[in-house]
Nucleic acid binder design. Structure first.
Length: 468
RNA sequence: GUGGUUGUAGCUCAGUCGGUUAGAGCACCAGAUUGUGAUUCUGGGGGUCGUGGGUUCGAGCCCCAUCUUCCACCCCA
């Protein structure tokens, strides 16, 4: 036996029973909405071929992929020269598999591999852990769950509208009342870049203006210049920071700025279409539901999500007045399956971050008590005879659907009662010699301390009544 | 990957200038109470001070390395 202290890898967590119960509550809310919108579950392996994952998330993303060392003699395929060529080259020689980095790429891989069996449009949801070799900090872990819903095989912007609807429904069902669904479009960003004469530099521009609410106008200006954007171009961006009014107003103002660029035009048309669909759906996201009386859906020109594969609409969800990062995000990607040799399949999807939603619900105290599950009755035994007497009662309780347990040994009463107390079991059933004689066990309410001798049928009735 | 931060009992944390035997609260165990938890009282167990080196007559405290925690970048759920 080793006497070293056990530990778990950095950025990973154990989930105790109370936490798992609450997490399952969130998963349940998400699943039921996904299924209501016609999405069906999919699961893929924790590990993928490394070649499936590399190159999909940009250079920085590649660095964050957890690689799996080849089993057996992982040096078998290497030569001394391979080491000299550096770690990037060597990685391919000693690692062929890796842990999945997100759920979207494995989904694309699945679609390509099963293209002949799938009927399009194909809608799936997937709730599984993903792994990133990131440096952990608040709300960021190396192993965390994503809850993705994607649809591939259609360009219809109805999908985008339904994503807004699903986000609104899930978060509302979880009890959140004040959150903002930010939407933007890659075309709008490209159009902006073109309109200010820096066509093709939208990546640099995006990274900078995405930080507007974090580092302010001056910070963005500085960063843009550092990233090689011309001075007059930076000035031409100024009006964008001050876009005001309703979403419709902003769309109109944008039309004036970028309407004559082809990409900008595409973006604006898409956004208009999304709004039309939502209006048709009577979407609550368009009406004033938040404390600020602003609609939940907000066109946010400065929203620029990093992932390199988004091409159309992009989303991000922020809970107002709670200090966590975004709890959901997504967008349209036109050519994800193209990387696997299957061109012209457009997809759109988004993801909930369960760990962050958990933190939000915890902070706002929104977990309902009904999300607490557990034993309702503990039968306390005194000796072999009372254990024997308890067995059929235990089964009767369970047959009636009452979560119940019999303390498995005739420990001291104090010990058995403490057990019930600490497991928050609301009722205890005591079975001693008197109760065996009368046939009526003592039912003790652990909250009030009241106790009465009743028949087992009455016990069941009392507990059932409490559940309502 | 860059810069900083943290680690002392199961948990939350004290610990003076480097000086004798490292403390508290909570938790745990036992008793007060032989058929009753949570409350009260009494007693008890529990520590290689993250780990490995170094400086020193002497290190929980100073130095180096490493792991861990949290934070800011980069990026992201």
């Amino acid at each position: 036996m080793s006497k070293e202290k056990p530990s778990i890898p950095k950025g990973t967590r154990d989930f105790g029973p109370a936490v798992v119960v609450k997490r399952n509550y969130i998963f349940g809310a998400i699943k039921s909405t996904f299924e209501k919108f016609g999405y069906l579950p999919l699961e893929t392996p924790a590990m993928e071929q490394l070649s499936v994952l590399t190159g999909k998330y940009g250079d920085e993303g590649d660095q964050l992929i957890f690689k799996i060392l080849n089993s057996g003699d992982f040096l078998a395929k290497t030569k001394p020269e391979d080491i000299e060529q550096g770690s990037k080259h060597l990685t391919r020689k000693i690692s062929e598999k890796a842990l999945r980095y997100d759920l979207t790429v494995p989904f694309a891989r699945f679609v390509v591999m099963n293209r002949n069996e799938i009927t399009f449009p194909f809608k799936r949801y997937q709730i599984q852990p993903v792994w990133r070799a990131d440096r952990p900090q608040k709300g960021r872990y190396r192993e965390f769950y994503q809850c993705d819903a994607d649809v591939v095989g259609t360009n219809s912007l109805l999908c985008e509208a339904e994503i807004v609807q699903m986000i609104n429904e899930v978060l509302t069902n979880l009890g959140l009342t004040d959150f903002t669904i930010k939407i933007n479009h890659r075309g709008v960003l490209a159009g902006i870049a073109e309109a200010i004469g820096e066509k093709g530099k939208e990546a640099e521009i995006c990274v900078a203006i995405d930080k507007l609410d974090k580092i302010g106008k001056e910070g963005v200006r500085k960063e843009l210049l550092e990233r090689g954007i011309a001075g007059e171009a930076v000035e031409m961006l100024e009006p964008l920071y001050n876009l005001a009014g309703t979403n419709e107003d902003i769309l109109e103002q944008l039309q004036n700025i970028i309407g004559n660029t082809s990409e900008g035009q595409r973006g604006l048309q898409d956004l208009h279409k999304v709004w039309q669909y939502l209006a048709g759906l009577n979407s609550q996201a368009l009406t004033s539901q938040n404390a600020s009386e602003a609609p939940r859906l907000q066109l946010e020109v400065t929203l620029a999500r990093g992932l390199s594969y988004y091409t159309g609409c992009i989303f991000e969800v922020k809970v107002n007045n709670v200090n966590v990062g975004s709890i959901s995000g997504g967008g349209r990607y036109d050519n994800l399956t193209g990387m696997f040799g299957m061109p012209d399949v457009s997809g759109v999807g988004f993801s909930f971050g369960v760990d962050r939603i958990y933190d939000v619900l915890e902070e706002l105290e929104l977990f309902p008590s009904s999300s607490q599950v557990g034993t309702k009755v503990l039968i306390v035994q005194f000796d072999k005879e009372s254990e024997q007497f308890a067995l059929p009662l235990l089964q009767q309780l369970r047959d009636a659907g009452v979560a119940s347990e019999l303390y498995p040994e005739a420990a001291k009463l104090k010990k058995q009662m403490s057990y019930a107390d600490q497991k928050n079991i609301p009722y205890v059933l005591l079975i001693g010699s008197e109760e065996i004689t009368s046939g009526k066990p003592q039912l003790r309410n652990m909250q009030t301390g009241e106790q009465q001798a009743v028949a087992i049928e009455t016990v069941i009735a009392i507990i059932k009544e409490q559940e309502v």
